[in-house]
Design a protein around this nucleic acid. Sequence first.
DNA 1: AGCTGCTCCTGGTCGC
DNA 2: TGCGACCAGGAGCAGC
Length: 278
Amino acid sequence: MPELPEVENVRRGLETLAVGKTVSAIDIRWSKIIVNPDEVFTAGLVGQQITAVDRRGKYLLIRFGEQLTVVSHLRMEGKYEVVAKEAPISKHTHVIFEFTDGQQMRYLDTRKFGRMQLIETGQENTVAGLKDLGPEPTPTIFLKAGFYQRLQKHHKAIKPLLLDQKVVTGLGNIYVDETLWLSHIHPETPANVLTRTETDRLHDEIIAELELAINHGGTTVNTFLNATGHAGAFQEMLHVYGKKGVPCERCGTPIEKIKVAQRGTHFCPKCQIKRDAK
DNA sequence: AGCTGCTCCTGGTCGC
DNA sequence: TGCGACCAGGAGCAGC
C-alpha cells in the first residue's frame, strides 16, 4: 500500500512523465473518486498544462497552470500510469487525463478508496486532512522536543498515534510496525509512559526508515508508476510486517500478530515488552 | 477535545 | 468446483 515513500516515488515519476503536458480531455469513469462535481473538475482542467508535482505527507499535489491544483490521495491501492492513448485500459482505471500529445495519465485503483479534489492553488488548507497535517518526517521539520511533548498528552497506545497524520505525516501500518520494532517499543505502550530517550530513538528511526524506503524505491521509474512494484523490492527489508511466526532477527522469538486499534499489528514479544499505564 | 467505531471497496482466502 | 463469509486497511466523519 502506498505510504510516504511510495507516494514520493510516484511524485518523482509524474514529475518526469507528466510535467509540461497539456490536458485535452478528461474521462471520469468512477465519479466517487472525484470530490468535486465531475463537470467542475473537467471544465477546470481541460486546456491546462501540468506545471509541477508536489507532495505533502501522502498527498500528491498536481499543479495545473499557475492557479489550479489537484490534491490526489492514493489510499490503499491507487496508482498512476502515463501511456499512449492506444494502450489497453484496465477495468480498474477510473480517471483518464488525455494530453494533447496523444498520451494519457491514468488513475487506477482496485478498491476505489482514493480521492482527487480540484482546488485553487494556495487553498490547500481548505482540504480536510491536509490542513491539520503534522510535520514531514525530516530532521529540520520534525523535532524531537515537539514529538515528545505531543506524545506526553496522550494515554492511548503509541501505534494509533503514529498512524495519526497530525502527529507526524507519512507513516502507514507497515512502517509503524517496523519503526516500533526498530525502537524496541511495544505497539500498545501508552504514549505518555515513553521516556524522552525512547521518543528520541523512535523519532530517529522514523526518519531513517522512511528515507531508506524512499531511496530504495527510487531505483525504478518507468512509464508505469506502480507503488506495489517498488514495495516488492522493499519487502526484503521488512523485519516484522507480515512475518507472523517468523523468528525475530534479533532474538529468534517468533513474531506475533495482534490487533491494535483495529489494525493488524506485528511485533516481537521479547524485544518489545508491553508496559502498563502510569 | 479525545477517542471509538463505522464507512468506502475489491480480491484473496477459507470452510463447507 | 462453487459459493458465501470474512479479512485487509487510510482517513473522513458521526457520535459519545
